[in-house]
Amino acid sequence: MAALDATSSAQQGHRLPNEQQVAQHLKNHSLRTPSRLIGLLPLIILVGVLLVALTVQHPLAVVLPWFALAGVLIKVHIRVRRLRHRQSELQKVQELSLQRRHREALDLAWQLLAGTTNLPQMHGHTIALIAHSLDQLKAYDSAIVAYSSLIDQLPQQYPGSLQLQIQRAIAQLQADHLVDADDTLRRQRHAVEAFANTIVSAGYQLARLIQQVRTNHFADAIGQAPTLLDDLRPLGIEAAYGHALMALSYLRLENNPTTNAQLWWTRATLLMPAGTLVNRFAELNSLWQADVLRESQRPFDPVAPL
Protein backbone atom coordinates (compact mmCIF):
# COMPACT_ATOMS: atom_id res chain seq x y z
CA MET A 1 0.00 0.00 0.00
CA ALA A 2 2.83 2.32 0.91
CA ALA A 3 4.46 1.47 -2.40
CA LEU A 4 1.26 2.26 -4.22
CA ASP A 5 0.98 5.58 -2.41
CA ALA A 6 4.56 6.45 -3.19
CA THR A 7 4.13 5.54 -6.84
CA SER A 8 0.80 7.23 -7.35
CA SER A 9 1.73 10.44 -5.58
CA ALA A 10 4.92 10.62 -7.60
CA GLN A 11 3.08 9.94 -10.82
CA GLN A 12 -0.04 12.03 -10.38
CA GLY A 13 0.77 15.64 -9.68
CA HIS A 14 3.62 17.61 -11.12
CA ARG A 15 5.49 17.31 -7.83
CA LEU A 16 8.67 15.32 -7.84
CA PRO A 17 9.02 12.39 -5.42
CA ASN A 18 10.56 13.36 -2.10
CA GLU A 19 13.35 11.38 -0.43
CA GLN A 20 10.95 9.18 1.58
CA GLN A 21 9.01 8.26 -1.53
CA VAL A 22 12.19 7.44 -3.42
CA ALA A 23 13.53 5.34 -0.53
CA GLN A 24 10.20 3.50 -0.26
CA HIS A 25 10.03 2.88 -4.00
CA LEU A 26 13.58 1.53 -4.10
CA LYS A 27 12.90 -0.66 -1.08
CA ASN A 28 9.72 -2.08 -2.58
CA HIS A 29 11.46 -2.86 -5.84
CA SER A 30 14.83 -3.93 -4.52
CA LEU A 31 16.98 -6.42 -6.40
CA ARG A 32 16.06 -10.08 -6.01
CA THR A 33 18.61 -12.74 -6.89
CA PRO A 34 17.09 -14.93 -9.59
CA SER A 35 16.49 -18.46 -8.29
CA ARG A 36 18.61 -21.16 -9.91
CA LEU A 37 15.79 -23.63 -9.40
CA ILE A 38 13.36 -21.48 -11.41
CA GLY A 39 15.98 -21.15 -14.13
CA LEU A 40 16.41 -24.91 -14.32
CA LEU A 41 12.69 -25.67 -14.02
CA PRO A 42 12.03 -26.10 -17.79
CA LEU A 43 14.88 -28.59 -18.04
CA ILE A 44 13.69 -30.50 -14.96
CA ILE A 45 10.16 -30.69 -16.39
CA LEU A 46 11.47 -31.91 -19.72
CA VAL A 47 13.59 -34.65 -18.15
CA GLY A 48 10.70 -35.66 -15.87
CA VAL A 49 8.29 -35.93 -18.76
CA LEU A 50 10.80 -37.94 -20.76
CA LEU A 51 11.25 -40.42 -17.92
CA VAL A 52 7.47 -40.78 -17.62
CA ALA A 53 7.22 -41.33 -21.37
CA LEU A 54 9.85 -44.06 -21.27
CA THR A 55 8.30 -45.92 -18.36
CA VAL A 56 4.55 -45.60 -18.95
CA GLN A 57 2.98 -47.95 -21.54
CA HIS A 58 0.37 -45.73 -23.09
CA PRO A 59 -0.04 -44.25 -26.59
CA LEU A 60 -0.20 -40.76 -25.11
CA ALA A 61 3.30 -41.25 -23.72
CA VAL A 62 4.61 -41.00 -27.30
CA VAL A 63 3.36 -37.44 -27.78
CA LEU A 64 3.86 -36.25 -24.19
CA PRO A 65 7.57 -35.27 -24.63
CA TRP A 66 6.66 -33.24 -27.70
CA PHE A 67 4.05 -31.30 -25.77
CA ALA A 68 6.60 -30.69 -23.02
CA LEU A 69 9.18 -29.54 -25.56
CA ALA A 70 6.66 -27.20 -27.18
CA GLY A 71 5.75 -25.84 -23.74
CA VAL A 72 9.40 -25.17 -22.87
CA LEU A 73 10.03 -23.45 -26.21
CA ILE A 74 6.95 -21.22 -25.76
CA LYS A 75 8.05 -20.37 -22.22
CA VAL A 76 11.57 -19.45 -23.38
CA HIS A 77 10.11 -17.39 -26.23
CA ILE A 78 7.85 -15.44 -23.85
CA ARG A 79 10.75 -14.83 -21.47
CA VAL A 80 12.99 -13.53 -24.27
CA ARG A 81 10.21 -11.25 -25.58
CA ARG A 82 9.66 -9.83 -22.09
CA LEU A 83 13.38 -9.19 -21.68
CA ARG A 84 13.57 -7.44 -25.06
CA HIS A 85 10.59 -5.27 -24.13
CA ARG A 86 12.30 -4.22 -20.90
CA GLN A 87 15.53 -3.49 -22.78
CA SER A 88 13.72 -1.32 -25.31
CA GLU A 89 11.99 0.59 -22.49
CA LEU A 90 15.31 1.16 -20.76
CA GLN A 91 16.78 2.40 -24.01
CA LYS A 92 13.84 4.80 -24.34
CA VAL A 93 14.58 6.18 -20.86
CA GLN A 94 18.24 6.61 -21.81
CA GLU A 95 17.27 8.46 -24.97
CA LEU A 96 14.90 10.76 -23.08
CA SER A 97 17.66 11.47 -20.60
CA LEU A 98 20.15 12.15 -23.39
CA GLN A 99 17.71 14.62 -24.94
CA ARG A 100 17.41 16.31 -21.53
CA ARG A 101 13.72 15.41 -21.22
CA HIS A 102 14.27 14.55 -17.59
CA ARG A 103 10.68 14.64 -16.35
CA GLU A 104 9.57 12.08 -18.94
CA ALA A 105 12.69 9.99 -18.31
CA LEU A 106 11.96 9.97 -14.58
CA ASP A 107 8.32 8.91 -15.04
CA LEU A 108 9.25 6.06 -17.34
CA ALA A 109 12.21 4.87 -15.24
CA TRP A 110 10.03 5.01 -12.11
CA GLN A 111 7.54 2.61 -13.72
CA LEU A 112 10.23 0.42 -15.26
CA LEU A 113 11.99 -0.31 -11.96
CA ALA A 114 9.32 -2.80 -10.84
CA GLY A 115 9.96 -4.99 -13.88
CA THR A 116 13.73 -5.17 -13.45
CA THR A 117 14.03 -6.60 -9.94
CA ASN A 118 15.41 -9.92 -11.21
CA LEU A 119 17.72 -8.33 -13.81
CA PRO A 120 20.70 -6.92 -11.85
CA GLN A 121 22.32 -4.89 -14.63
CA MET A 122 19.09 -3.30 -15.83
CA HIS A 123 17.98 -2.63 -12.27
CA GLY A 124 21.17 -0.70 -11.50
CA HIS A 125 20.91 1.19 -14.77
CA THR A 126 17.31 2.17 -14.04
CA ILE A 127 18.18 3.50 -10.58
CA ALA A 128 21.08 5.47 -12.08
CA LEU A 129 18.68 7.06 -14.56
CA ILE A 130 16.15 7.88 -11.80
CA ALA A 131 18.91 9.50 -9.75
CA HIS A 132 20.25 11.46 -12.71
CA SER A 133 16.78 12.71 -13.68
CA LEU A 134 16.01 13.80 -10.11
CA ASP A 135 19.37 15.55 -9.97
CA GLN A 136 18.73 17.45 -13.19
CA LEU A 137 15.22 18.36 -12.01
CA LYS A 138 16.82 19.85 -8.89
CA ALA A 139 15.24 17.31 -6.49
CA TYR A 140 18.65 16.97 -4.89
CA ASP A 141 17.66 15.21 -1.65
CA SER A 142 15.73 12.58 -3.58
CA ALA A 143 18.61 12.17 -6.02
CA ILE A 144 21.04 11.62 -3.11
CA VAL A 145 18.86 8.78 -1.82
CA ALA A 146 18.82 7.10 -5.24
CA TYR A 147 22.57 7.61 -5.77
CA SER A 148 23.35 6.20 -2.31
CA SER A 149 21.18 3.16 -2.90
CA LEU A 150 23.05 2.33 -6.09
CA ILE A 151 26.53 3.14 -4.75
CA ASP A 152 25.95 0.68 -1.89
CA GLN A 153 25.43 -2.09 -4.47
CA LEU A 154 28.66 -1.44 -6.41
CA PRO A 155 32.36 -2.07 -5.58
CA GLN A 156 33.99 1.16 -4.31
CA GLN A 157 36.76 1.47 -6.94
CA TYR A 158 34.57 0.51 -9.91
CA PRO A 159 34.68 3.43 -12.42
CA GLY A 160 30.88 3.56 -12.56
CA SER A 161 30.75 3.78 -8.78
CA LEU A 162 33.30 6.62 -8.75
CA GLN A 163 31.25 8.59 -11.24
CA LEU A 164 28.08 8.05 -9.21
CA GLN A 165 29.88 9.17 -6.04
CA ILE A 166 30.98 12.37 -7.78
CA GLN A 167 27.45 13.02 -9.02
CA ARG A 168 26.15 12.43 -5.50
CA ALA A 169 28.77 14.83 -4.10
CA ILE A 170 27.59 17.52 -6.55
CA ALA A 171 23.96 16.90 -5.52
CA GLN A 172 25.04 17.11 -1.86
CA LEU A 173 26.74 20.44 -2.53
CA GLN A 174 23.63 21.72 -4.27
CA ALA A 175 21.51 20.63 -1.30
CA ASP A 176 23.95 22.29 1.14
CA HIS A 177 25.11 18.98 2.66
CA LEU A 178 28.64 20.35 2.63
CA VAL A 179 30.14 17.98 5.20
CA ASP A 180 28.92 14.87 3.39
CA ALA A 181 30.18 16.19 0.07
CA ASP A 182 33.56 17.07 1.56
CA ASP A 183 33.85 13.56 3.00
CA THR A 184 33.09 11.97 -0.40
CA LEU A 185 35.49 14.20 -2.32
CA ARG A 186 38.33 13.64 0.15
CA ARG A 187 37.98 9.87 -0.11
CA GLN A 188 38.02 9.99 -3.90
CA ARG A 189 41.07 12.19 -4.35
CA HIS A 190 43.50 9.33 -5.04
CA ALA A 191 41.09 7.02 -6.83
CA VAL A 192 40.33 9.70 -9.42
CA GLU A 193 44.01 10.04 -10.40
CA ALA A 194 43.76 6.77 -12.34
CA PHE A 195 41.13 8.33 -14.61
CA ALA A 196 42.97 11.41 -15.87
CA ASN A 197 41.39 13.23 -18.84
CA THR A 198 38.16 11.30 -18.54
CA ILE A 199 34.66 12.31 -17.58
CA VAL A 200 35.35 10.93 -14.07
CA SER A 201 38.25 13.32 -13.40
CA ALA A 202 36.39 16.19 -15.10
CA GLY A 203 33.36 15.59 -12.88
CA TYR A 204 35.64 15.55 -9.83
CA GLN A 205 37.23 18.89 -10.80
CA LEU A 206 33.79 20.43 -11.27
CA ALA A 207 32.68 19.10 -7.86
CA ARG A 208 35.80 20.59 -6.26
CA LEU A 209 35.11 23.93 -7.90
CA ILE A 210 31.49 23.96 -6.73
CA GLN A 211 32.68 23.10 -3.23
CA GLN A 212 35.23 25.94 -3.23
CA VAL A 213 32.63 28.44 -4.43
CA ARG A 214 30.00 27.23 -1.94
CA THR A 215 32.47 27.50 0.94
CA ASN A 216 33.79 30.90 -0.25
CA HIS A 217 37.30 29.56 -0.95
CA PHE A 218 37.61 31.68 -4.07
CA ALA A 219 41.42 31.87 -3.94
CA ASP A 220 41.59 28.05 -3.99
CA ALA A 221 39.20 28.01 -6.93
CA ILE A 222 41.36 30.47 -8.86
CA GLY A 223 44.33 28.22 -8.17
CA GLN A 224 42.74 25.67 -10.53
CA ALA A 225 42.39 28.22 -13.35
CA PRO A 226 45.57 27.34 -15.36
CA THR A 227 44.47 23.76 -15.96
CA LEU A 228 40.70 24.12 -15.68
CA LEU A 229 40.03 24.43 -19.40
CA ASP A 230 41.74 21.09 -20.14
CA ASP A 231 40.42 19.47 -16.99
CA LEU A 232 36.78 20.21 -17.82
CA ARG A 233 36.85 19.45 -21.57
CA PRO A 234 35.56 15.85 -21.22
CA LEU A 235 32.30 17.29 -19.82
CA GLY A 236 31.39 18.77 -23.21
CA ILE A 237 29.12 21.79 -23.05
CA GLU A 238 28.56 21.19 -19.32
CA ALA A 239 32.10 22.51 -18.84
CA ALA A 240 30.32 25.88 -19.08
CA TYR A 241 29.22 25.49 -15.44
CA GLY A 242 32.87 25.28 -14.38
CA HIS A 243 33.84 28.27 -16.52
CA ALA A 244 31.01 30.34 -15.05
CA LEU A 245 31.97 29.37 -11.50
CA MET A 246 35.55 30.38 -12.23
CA ALA A 247 34.29 33.76 -13.46
CA LEU A 248 32.31 34.12 -10.24
CA SER A 249 35.41 33.28 -8.19
CA TYR A 250 37.39 36.03 -9.92
CA LEU A 251 34.52 38.47 -9.47
CA ARG A 252 34.10 37.71 -5.75
CA LEU A 253 37.80 37.76 -4.99
CA GLU A 254 38.54 40.99 -6.75
CA ASN A 255 35.13 42.50 -6.00
CA ASN A 256 34.71 44.05 -9.43
CA PRO A 257 34.37 42.71 -12.93
CA THR A 258 37.91 41.96 -14.06
CA THR A 259 39.46 40.83 -17.30
CA ASN A 260 39.73 37.30 -15.96
CA ALA A 261 36.10 37.24 -14.91
CA GLN A 262 35.12 38.48 -18.35
CA LEU A 263 37.30 35.87 -20.03
CA TRP A 264 35.77 32.97 -18.12
CA TRP A 265 32.25 34.32 -18.48
CA THR A 266 32.79 34.63 -22.24
CA ARG A 267 33.90 31.01 -22.36
CA ALA A 268 30.88 29.91 -20.33
CA THR A 269 28.34 31.79 -22.41
CA LEU A 270 29.92 30.57 -25.63
CA LEU A 271 28.94 27.07 -24.61
CA MET A 272 25.67 27.66 -22.80
CA PRO A 273 23.10 30.45 -22.53
CA ALA A 274 23.46 32.56 -19.37
CA GLY A 275 19.89 31.73 -18.35
CA THR A 276 20.65 27.99 -18.25
CA LEU A 277 23.76 28.62 -16.17
CA VAL A 278 21.85 30.73 -13.65
CA ASN A 279 19.03 28.20 -13.53
CA ARG A 280 21.49 25.51 -12.40
CA PHE A 281 23.58 27.66 -10.04
CA ALA A 282 21.57 30.51 -8.50
CA GLU A 283 24.73 32.24 -7.22
CA LEU A 284 25.66 32.99 -10.83
CA ASN A 285 22.78 35.47 -10.93
CA SER A 286 25.00 38.16 -9.43
CA LEU A 287 27.47 37.53 -12.22
CA TRP A 288 24.76 37.80 -14.82
CA GLN A 289 23.64 41.09 -13.36
CA ALA A 290 27.14 42.60 -13.57
CA ASP A 291 26.85 45.14 -16.37
CA VAL A 292 30.36 44.69 -17.70
CA LEU A 293 29.91 40.93 -17.99
CA ARG A 294 26.51 41.28 -19.63
CA GLU A 295 28.26 43.03 -22.47
CA SER A 296 30.64 40.12 -22.92
CA GLN A 297 27.78 37.68 -23.48
CA ARG A 298 27.41 36.82 -27.10
CA PRO A 299 24.24 34.85 -27.71
CA PHE A 300 24.39 32.93 -30.96
CA ASP A 301 21.98 33.60 -33.75
CA PRO A 302 23.09 31.74 -36.88
CA VAL A 303 20.59 33.58 -39.07
CA ALA A 304 21.56 37.03 -37.85
CA PRO A 305 22.90 39.36 -40.57
CA LEU A 306 26.65 39.61 -40.60
Binding site: L46, L50, A53, L54, V56, Q57, H58, P59, L60, A61, V62, V63, P65, W66, L69
Partner: peptide, 29 residues
Protein backbone atom coordinates in the same frame (compact mmCIF):
# COMPACT_ATOMS: atom_id res chain seq x y z
CA UNK B 1 8.89 -34.58 -38.84
CA UNK B 2 9.36 -36.48 -35.59
CA UNK B 3 6.52 -34.64 -33.89
CA UNK B 4 4.19 -35.42 -36.80
CA UNK B 5 5.25 -39.07 -36.78
CA UNK B 6 4.71 -39.33 -33.03
CA UNK B 7 1.26 -37.78 -33.29
CA UNK B 8 0.35 -40.09 -36.21
CA UNK B 9 1.50 -43.20 -34.33
CA UNK B 10 -0.31 -42.18 -31.17
CA UNK B 11 -3.59 -41.34 -32.86
CA UNK B 12 -3.85 -43.85 -35.69
CA UNK B 13 -1.56 -46.73 -34.83
CA UNK B 14 -2.07 -46.58 -31.04
CA UNK B 15 1.67 -47.09 -30.72
CA UNK B 16 3.42 -47.37 -27.38
CA UNK B 17 6.88 -46.02 -26.41
CA UNK B 18 8.49 -49.27 -27.59
CA UNK B 19 8.34 -47.77 -31.07
CA UNK B 20 11.64 -46.11 -30.29
CA UNK B 21 10.42 -42.58 -30.87
CA UNK B 22 10.94 -41.65 -27.25
CA UNK B 23 14.54 -42.82 -27.41
CA UNK B 24 15.00 -40.89 -30.61
CA UNK B 25 13.56 -37.91 -28.81
CA UNK B 26 16.15 -38.37 -26.06
CA UNK B 27 19.00 -38.36 -28.59
CA UNK B 28 17.52 -35.37 -30.30
CA UNK B 29 17.01 -33.49 -27.02
Amino acid sequence: AMACLAAFEAVYLQATPESGLSLLFLVFA
